[in-house]
Amino acid sequence: MLTLRKAEERGHANHGWLDSYHSFSFANYYDPAHMGFRSLRVINQDRVRGGMGFGTHPHRDMEIISYVLEGALEHKDSMGNGSIIAPGEVQRLTAGTGITHSEFNHSKTEQVHFLQIWILPDRQNLQPSYEQKNFTVEQKRDRLLLIASNDGRNGSVTVNQDLNLYATVLSNGAEVTHTVKPGRHAWVQVARGEALLNGQPMKAGDGAATSQPGELQLIGKDDAEVLIFDLA
């Protein structure tokens, strides 16, 4: 059974420079029915105006993944890392015992559009660390590509949690499947475009959860970009 989380039902905050939609409770948006799903705590769809961004702020005991869809995100942190995250690149930040960082739109004129994902780690007080890798559209085209995992296999970024995160970019009519094994759980998030999930129409911003073993079938429409979280 799929439980849908429609895009228009998410929390929303528009600060002018930042237009953000929250799949789960975040900041001033509180919904006790949507506090997260398993270890998945935050999926924020953020659009930041040119020249604007998040000033230096702290985090601890959280795995933070940034997935850029459009534009470029500039990152700096207290570990000395500085980078530009472009579409196709995945950044993983382990906050652990505590870090500070900032995120800004690298462009002065064009918006940056990205997903910020928070995952609860499997243990606290980890050593803070940082990782960034590029996954091309060609690698994701019409297949599920592993982009984050607990063991970093197949070139994925390493996350301190029992999680497998897959990404795909689906051509019109293209199909991929993922099997949810007994004891596992899945969250499907449409980043852009449209797709059918087990026959259910989904659009950008929609999410769906299942804790039932079985097959998830995705059929693409309009270059759908979709993430699948396979969770303990």
Rank of each mutant, 00 (worst) to 15 (best):
R153L: 06
G98K: 08
V48W: 05
Q124M: 14
E63Q: 10
K108V: 11
F37P: 04
P32H: 05
I85K: 05
F37Q: 05
Q132L: 07
K133H: 07
R141H: 08
V42K: 08
E74I: 00
H101F: 03
S156Q: 08
Q116I: 02
V68S: 06
G82R: 13
D61C: 05
S149F: 06
H113W: 12
A95K: 02
T94D: 10
L120Q: 13
R47W: 00
R92K: 12
R41N: 04
V90F: 03
P121K: 09
I119L: 13
I147P: 05
S107M: 11
Y130S: 02
Y67F: 10
G36R: 04
H59G: 03
S39K: 12
D77K: 03
G51V: 07
A86Q: 10
M52R: 12
L93W: 04
N150W: 07
G55F: 09
F114P: 04
E110T: 10
D31E: 05
Y67E: 03
S156V: 07
Q139W: 10
P87F: 05
L93S: 07
M62S: 10
L144D: 09
N44F: 03
I64S: 01
F135Q: 06
I43P: 03
V42C: 10
V90W: 00
I85P: 05
G53T: 04
L69D: 00
L120Y: 11
I43F: 14
F114S: 08
K108T: 14
T56Y: 07
L115Y: 14
N154K: 14
S149Q: 09
G155V: 01
F37K: 07
S78Q: 01
F54T: 02
L93I: 12
I65E: 01
S102A: 12
T100S: 09
R153F: 02
I85R: 01
N44R: 01
D142Q: 00
S149P: 09
L93C: 06
M79C: 02
T97I: 12
K76E: 14
T100Q: 07
A95Y: 07
A33L: 12
I147F: 10
H113F: 11
E103R: 05
E110D: 15
H34A: 13
G152I: 01
H34G: 00
F114E: 06
G82T: 11
D122A: 08
D122L: 03
E74Q: 14
S39A: 13
N125P: 12
I147L: 05
N154E: 15
E138T: 13
Y67I: 04
H106V: 13
K108P: 12
F104E: 15
S107Q: 10
E63S: 10
N150M: 14
L69E: 01
S39W: 10
N125E: 15
N154A: 15
R49T: 15
T136P: 06
T100R: 02
A86C: 03
Q132G: 02
G50Y: 04
G71A: 00
G96D: 04
I99G: 02
R41I: 09
V42R: 01
R47P: 03
R47L: 13
M62N: 06
V112T: 11
L69Y: 00
L146P: 09
R47N: 10
F104Q: 14
R38H: 00
V48L: 08
L145W: 12
Y130W: 08
F37Y: 11
E110H: 11
R38E: 00
S102I: 06
S129F: 01
F54C: 01
G50E: 08
G71T: 02
N150H: 14
V90M: 02
V137C: 00
D151Q: 08
Q127Y: 15
